[in-house]
Amino acid sequence: MIELKDITVRFNRGSVDEVLALNNVNLTIGEGEFATVIGTNGSGKSTLLNLIAGDIMPDEGKVILDGKDVTRWPAYRRAVILSRVFQNPYLSTAPDMTIAENLLMAWFRGKTRYPKFSLNRALLKEFRLKLADLEMNLEDRITNTAGTLSGGQRQALTLLMAVLLKPRILLLDEHTAALDPKSAAQVIKLTEKFVSSYRLTSLMVTHSMKQALEMGTRIIMMHRGRIISDIPAREKELLTVDDLLGKFDNIRKKEKLSTEILANFRRQYA
């Protein structure tokens, strides 16, 4: 479903600040797989997601989604295949538009929009039913603007918008990182529910090792623009947070990093 071939991405190309954001990355994620991506700051995990979404074009290599070579497709064109949820809840909804209108925008994901009036009673009813699934009482506030919602509510709405048309691929970019713990838990719950009931091919970037272990079928560990470890489902079930940290410890030894940095990793990930 997702296939990355020999991907290299450089930032600030040709300048002294040149950064090798992705270094010859190869990755294949099959249909129905739910992979989580973890890694240090600047390891390239967000770059990886943005590359698949089309926000970043690779300097070398190919991006193949759903069997199509989409390497040169702009982001909006890829929306036919994939949908995404951003870390910042404000990025995913139009604040001045109602919940219903926001959902309508998602209802046409990847389709041509005409000067027609599709937001009729039948569709509103359908939207209400779907909103009820979120268990946030949004179904009663369908004519309120998205700007009046809390971060958690917004992110739940965003998630619903992302899965409304059952995308082939779902990209989640640390989508609970900016939420309070209670909202985060609810959004995680919803994520698992949608992914499993719709059998979505998903890629989730996370900062939390715990989340990475509890969710998904596969863990991809990144460091310095490379995939350093790809842990399949069987192996994943046996792992603990400490095992994951151990893996980073190995890198430390290889790269002779100071223990302080490792302590930093612990604080951040454990």
Partner: peptide, 26 residues
């Protein structure tokens, strides 16, 4: 017109370009 699907998409474009391009709109 502004209330139609196309009009609303135009509104969303101004309101939140990131969101609307994620919904497949140029």
């Amino acid at each position: 017109f502004l209330k139609s699907d196309l009009g609303l998409t135009m509104l969303a474009t101004g309101n939140n370009p990131t969101m609307i391009s994620a919904q497949g709109v140029s």
